[in-house]
Design a protein around this nucleic acid. Sequence first.
RNA 1: GCGGGUGUAACUCAAUGGUAGAGUGUCAGCUUCCCAAGCUGAAAGUUGUGGGUUCGAUCCCCAUCACCCGCUCCA
Length: 570
Amino acid sequence: MVAPDMEKIVSLSKRRGFIFQSSEVYGGIGSTWDYGPLGVELKNNVKRAWWRSVVYDREDMEGLDAAILMNRLVWRYSGHEATFSDPLVDCKQCKKRFRSDHVQGKVCPECTGELTDPRSFNLMFQTYLGPVQDDSGLAYLRPETAQGIFVNFANVQQTMRRKLPFGVAQIGKSFRNEITPGNFTFRTREFEQMEIEYYCKPPKYLQSGEKDDEVLHQEWIEQRFNWYVRLGIAPCRLQKREQSKEELAHYAKATTDIEYIFPGSLGWSELEGVANRQDYDLSAHSKDIPETDLERLKLSKNIDSIQKLDYFDEQYVDPETNKKGARYIPYVIEPSAGADRATLAFLCEAYNEELVSEPKESDLTQLREACTLAAKNLEKKVAEAEKQKAKGGETKVDTKESPTLEQLKAISDGLARAVEGLPKTLLAFEDVCNMPGADRLDVLKKTRPIAAKLCDEYTRVVLKLHPQLAPIKVAVFPLKKNEPRIVEVAKKIRHDLQPYLRIVYDDTAGIGKLYRRQDEIGTPFCITVDFQTLEDHTVTVRERDTMQQERVAITQLAPHLCQKIGLSIF
RNA sequence: GCGGGUGUAACUCAAUGGUAGAGUGUCAGCUUCCCAAGCUGAAAGUUGUGGGUUCGAUCCCCAUCACCCGCUCCA
């Protein structure tokens, strides 16, 4: 099971300190979100796992952290200044919106209504450097981190003495004035990217046995796909989608999106795009690019750059002249991921509601009675709706007052199935109450709290996050908090493990509730100090997903847990 | 930007044209030898914000903000 809808994630995020609405005390501000104490741990872990995977676990990668503010010319020559400010027109009659260069005259192509004057929508945030707000100080908040990597190509290559192929990774904030943000943290105006520019040889300069750009492109797609899977995303909810020729930006030879199927209306959506951008970007920022290449890349001559971002290949031997060495602009493969999107995907994927134990039949009586009542009422409503349909001939639309016939039937069926499957289907009642139209049925409003109360008692919410991503790795509890010897040992364990692991101590509830609390935030291991501990210096280590326990000597806890979590200290 | 919906305690939701309730959660204490147990007590909301109608608005009307759904858009 994964999150059934995004609202579950939003509500859990708020309740347990993962993600808050930004500027909440002033009523919020559109599409911005703050990561709370657990959210920042989770997102940091995602970024750290990414950095480890693409920088530390390879021999051919370097890191970078470029400034958010850059010379305006970067965005002129990258093409953003032109393509990021579309003049748009709206139809005053049918409210559709068009790019003004796609429309003839001042008439709507669809309904022939009158169009507004063109308005410029610049998707880049502007700001001014220095005290005077005029064009001389105009700067943009970067809409992508990639350009910071491109313009530093020569710096990185020379200082690290790199030979092709090699890549540069960067994590950082980007800003886009999106027209339609939404879907929680999925599309926001301020977001964090994890981008790689992997520089390689253009096909012409390859020597035998070397991988070409297309092979490297495929390898990156595979590696990035597998990264998500390794950290817990089920492959069935992840897909590679190759962009069609029509979708491709003119500078991209090929792009494959890695998509995750998010809950609710969001559905299949992009986590990451892996593009083969050829030599477009480095050429764009270089002086002295030959006319033929400018034409091929549809670039205009760069009259402002003071560098040529090319590469001297000493090994290359010209097959015709036998001349050694060549100077050329490298190709680039760009795996560009969203840190917030990955974090959201991991949260959605990890979310589980489980029946911990089967409810006693005596506890179910009230629910069964309420359902019988609801079923009868629904039957009546269905019959009414059918009669009306036969009479009026017209299918009733989904109105404020009552659900449609189809909705009624679906709810009725859902309820019947849920009742039949009891006690195993306890969790299904909530789904039934959330079906379209159900909110307008009073009978279900009465059933909901009864089912909810049972769910509280017999189910748990558990985030099955990969241990490396979990915000808290270990929690320590005393089995009895009014037994000072046990409390003392538990607190000492927390203190001793603190240098190795993110660990918390809690004794403010019964043991069952303490476990549930940690389940809900994805803590993979809970240590409980009990009476046996006082005799043999062992504790129980309880595993989140299975709820199984094993006894471990206190002295072995650090290596034992670090090994299970996959930390490399021991 | 357009259309529809929502906004009440930290969360989930009730209620009413006459100064707001429940469950969960949180906190304190007691109790408890392993999975949201029990008991006692407590804190917590100018009902998103600002106007209007009214003797009186959380409820009706208008505006605004935020979120959700659908369009539109999306390197």
